[in-house]
Design a protein around this nucleic acid. Structure first.
Lengths: 192, 192
DNA sequence: GGCGCAATCTTGTCAGTGTCAAGTTCGAGG
DNA sequence: CCTCGAACTTGACACTGACAAGATTGCGCC
């Protein structure tokens, strides 16, 4: 893998993407170095740039791939709370993608592939609240659900709830979270 | 400000911190350059290192300051939902701090100041769910509330809900979110 | 089959960065 | 006044992203 007889690598794009995901998952996007990725793939220092143009280009490609994966993961989940679980599942399964997707400064916001993938995932998210009964403001409800899932996923990946969930499965724990919320066991302003 | 007669700057630490916050808020932590901060303060390129040791040291100092500011902002809020609003308020008022606080790879996790500040803020968060009536699992309820607030704050700062809230005040919008959640207007699994 | 061409990869270079080491300036406390 | 340590400077080194120009290769098309 590191040595190669042919002049052309054959699948450099995929190799660089995979290596980048490893680095990001382990040390964050800031530790990403195009030259290091080139070394890992056994090519010259400028080879990756040919496929991604930029460091920003690489990160944008990762984000786009992430939105596609998210859309896939959400897939055809039957109802809203299950979509939340799927959202958490995605974050756990693809932490590097998740991290990059939500740091706009790292990305080329007007990239066509990114926009298309984002819209794709966005449609899946919206579908979750589309047929909800007796909800006055479906859009706000959707954002509430998104906030809950996104917040939990973020806190999970940043090691901020590891102590609380112990060795329980994150998805399962999130199910109990939604259970609490959806059955109104969180009191409001003094039981209003 | 850029020119200075004395050999000593006088307040370099604060100057660098302030400049760093500007840069981070505008272009993210990745755009941070110690040499650039030195230029802005009108000192030599290695001067900032004397106060923060590292790039990591600077970011750790920012995160610690952030947790102290968060603890202050949460302050003596009366009840849980109001603490959520305060949490969002903090994120909007101090976006640079917020961003850095939740990127562990950027920080020196064992820094004493950081740990102390984090514990300080954590205590404030816990206080919000301390005296909740008739909640079986207060810890889980706290994480649910934290997830909701944190998720909304993150989505807000990453421009993912700007379209939805329009020109409304983020805090006010979040209040309506918690309203939805706490009054159980989000249906569960088909009305179970 | 082989020719040309464009995609892929290499080599070389430049400015910019973080970090370390060693020297310089300054001010406070004895 | 003098010393000593904190604050800052100067210089250096390895590393990085980006660009330009050249080498190599596989593939389509005649």
């Amino acid at each position: 893998m590191t040595s190669r007889s042919t002049y052309h690598h054959g699948d450099l794009r995929q190799a660089v993407l995979a290596a980048a995901l490893d680095v990001i998952a382990a040390e964050g996007p800031g530790a990403l170095s195009l030259r290091d990725l080139a070394r890992r793939a056994g090519v010259s220092h400028a080879a990756p740039a040919h496929h991604f143009k930029d460091r920003t280009g690489l990160l944008t490609a990762i984000a786009a791939q992430g939105y596609e994966l998210l859309a896939e993961t959400l897939g055809d989940a039957p109802e809203l709370s299950e979509r939340g679980v799927r959202y958490v599942r995605f974050a756990v399964a693809h932490p590097a993608h998740f991290q990059v997707m939500f740091q706009p400064e790292l990305l080329r916001a007007d990239d066509p592939d990114l926009l298309a993938a984002k819209e794709h995932a966005s449609a899946e998210l919206r579908a979750g609240v589309a047929g909800l009964p007796d909800v006055p403001d479906a859009r706000t409800a959707g954002i509430a659900a998104w906030s809950l899932a996104h917040g939990f996923a973020t806190l999970l990946l940043t090691q901020n709830v590891t102590a609380a969930i112990g060795d329980r499965d994150p998805e399962e724990y999130f199910r109990s979270l939604t259970g609490l919320v959806f059955t109104n066991q969180l009191p409001s302003r003094g039981g209003e």
